[in-house]
Design a protein around this nucleic acid. Sequence first.
DNA 1: GTAATATAATTGACATATCAATTATATTTG
DNA 2: CAAATATAATTGATATGTCAATTATATTAC
Lengths: 146, 146
Amino acid sequence: MSLPLPSETIFHVIESTIKEYRKFAQKNISKKVKDITIDQSMVLIFLNEHPELTQKEIAKLVFRDNASLTRMLNTMVKKKYLKRSVDNKDRRRYNIEITAKGKDILDTLPPIIHQNRNSSLKGITKNEQKQLEIILNKIKTNCLKT
Amino acid sequence: MSLPLPSETIFHVIESTIKEYRKFAQKNISKKVKDITIDQSMVLIFLNEHPELTQKEIAKLVFRDNASLTRMLNTMVKKKYLKRSVDNKDRRRYNIEITAKGKDILDTLPPIIHQNRNSSLKGITKNEQKQLEIILNKIKTNCLKT
DNA sequence: GTAATATAATTGACATATCAATTATATTTG
DNA sequence: CAAATATAATTGATATGTCAATTATATTAC
């Protein structure tokens, strides 16, 4: 009746799965685009779709805290994927702009991402994906409730 | 027919779930034990059960790379949870020993961990957990194959 | 048995993670 | 409208993540 080891729990399975997916996705992105991380790619994609996002909102979308996002954006500005300028309507905020270099990457990414998602979900039915989502959301809700 | 945003994918659900679980678990641990992280707790638990583990093996169990584990162990030695000494049978390795302070923590943790796992899995049947595991393992296998 | 190779762990360099404190600006309230 | 409060983002401190290079020791092959 002793507690199962962390490695014997469902949480270990969840964590190892997402980590393997990230490694897999990063590897495939790196083959075509040097010098960008998955998270930086996601930031580009979100900003492209929703240019008006605040840093706080982006942080939430990529599961980072604000401090972390500030530093990520600093890196991305240094690498010339982004430009930042103070928002004149609310001077606490920044307008974030994707540079030509950033746009280039955005053109290259979609087929890679599509392929990543497809091949990692190969053999998994729509219904299974639905099930997966339902069960995971239950766990998440439980964690948020207490 | 454009690519769904990262936030609309199953990977986002997986990642957000494990992050919420980690936050939840960390919060509950911190209430009782100051100054230890989930990962440090896991290292303690694994070492307690399998004292002969090499750093490389521990790293794998907690999904870190060797460099990262070296630094984690340094912190844990500095905080007096662990002691390290060179292994005389293989002088490239270390024997890692849990101190009295580490043992204390190991006594405190199990009920907290038990509670964390239970309440986050509340309302989820054994069968659902099985399903979850099967589907996630398929994804993981796909990522490792290619 | 020595040279070549393999393995365990560390280190350096840099990016990210996270908390708490701080700065700068906006909004609310008395 | 001035003081109090709230919000967006940054900064400092410290830990971790990751890659590539390095150190130290073991193992293998000639």
